[in-house]
Every structure is written in C-alpha cells, then in structure tokens.
C-alpha cells in the first residue's frame, strides 16, 4: 500500500501543522484510488484544509465537522476526484496513530496521515491505511509515502477548502 502525493501537497500538509501548533491541524486528501500491479495506491491530487472543531481540546484532539466534509465531498465529486484520505498533526507527540485515532477511524480503504510537530517544526510524517472490511475487523497498516516531484500538470487545484469552510 502506498500513498502518493506531490512535494507541494506534502509540504502543504506539514506546514498546516506548523501553523496551527500547539493545536492539531486536520484536513482532507482528494485524489484517486488506484490499483497498480496488485498494489493499492492512494494518489493524492490535493490537500484541503479543514477546521478543527475540538476547540475544547485542540492540542490533542481533532474533529472535522460533517457539514464541512459533505461540502468537500460534493465539490470533489463535481471535479472528478474523491476523498482518499485525511491528515492531522501530533503536536509534541510521535507520528504514530493513537488508540483514539483508531477508535474514531471509520473510512476503510483511506489513508490517515500523521505529522509530528515538535516545538512548532514539522518532523516525521507517516501514513497508515485503514484496512479491513468493516468496523469489527478494521486495522491500521503502515504504508509507504511516495513523494513525487510535481503536481499532475493537467490538474488545477481550486480554492475549495475556503469555500467549504465559509
């Protein structure tokens, strides 16, 4: 299993974690589910920033409002991409999924990207694929992150994140 994204998208999601430090950032990854020689590749075209609704505990919790997610999903479909993953940051905490991350992960097949942000600087970024077929047998599996040199030249990112958040 592989998560593929451009260096621009990779940098953008890591930078988001630095900007929101010491709070957790969160966002949605849009792209395509690919199957390459039997290997499942989640190919990201764009990272959309989302607001963290957990203002009560933003240093160690995140939540994306479903209303915002609905808007992001609808806009994505109109443009021929879909939700392939999510990202969030771990301020002063390792880039490993936590029991809370696991309990609250429900998008089987999607990638969950975590960036450790230490004293305001992004360090390790890891991706975990939520494998399985249903709630009862789901599991996080480590997946490789493949950072490509540039965006797909045919793809034009939109300011959708701002529109969805308004």
């Amino acid at each position: 299993m592989t998560l593929r994204l451009s260096v621009q998208v990779y940098d953008a999601l890591r930078q988001h974690g630095e900007e929101t430090y010491p709070h957790e950032c969160c966002g949605v990854l849009l792209g395509h589910f690919l199957e390459e020689a039997g290997r499942a590749v989640n190919a990201v075209e764009e990272a959309v920033r989302a607001g963290n609704t957990r203002t009560d505990s933003a240093h160690n919790r995140y939540n994306i409002a479903p209303q915002e997610l609905v808007k992001i999903q609808r806009a994505a479909r109109e443009r021929g991409v879909e939700i392939v993953g999510f990202y969030h940051s771990h301020p002063d905490h390792p880039a490993q999924w936590s029991p809370t991350d696991f309990a609250e992960a429900h998008w089987i097949g999607c990638s969950y990207v975590i960036t450790a942000v230490e004293e305001g600087a992004a360090r390790v970024t890891n991706s975990f694929r939520l494998a399985g077929t249903r709630e009862e047998d789901k599991a996080f599996e480590d997946e490789a992150i493949e950072v490509t040199g540039q965006l797909d030249p045919g793809y034009e990112p939109s300011p959708m994140g701002d529109a969805a958040r308004k």
């Binding site: 969160c26 999924w97 609250e104 998008w107």
Partner: peptide, 9 residues
C-alpha cells in the same frame, strides 16, 4: 452518508 472524521494524539 458520511462517516465521521476525528482522532487525537
């Protein structure tokens, strides 16, 4: 139909 997105450290 939208599963929720949440977690923590």
């Amino acid at each position: 139909i939208i599963p929720s997105i949440a977690g923590g450290d």
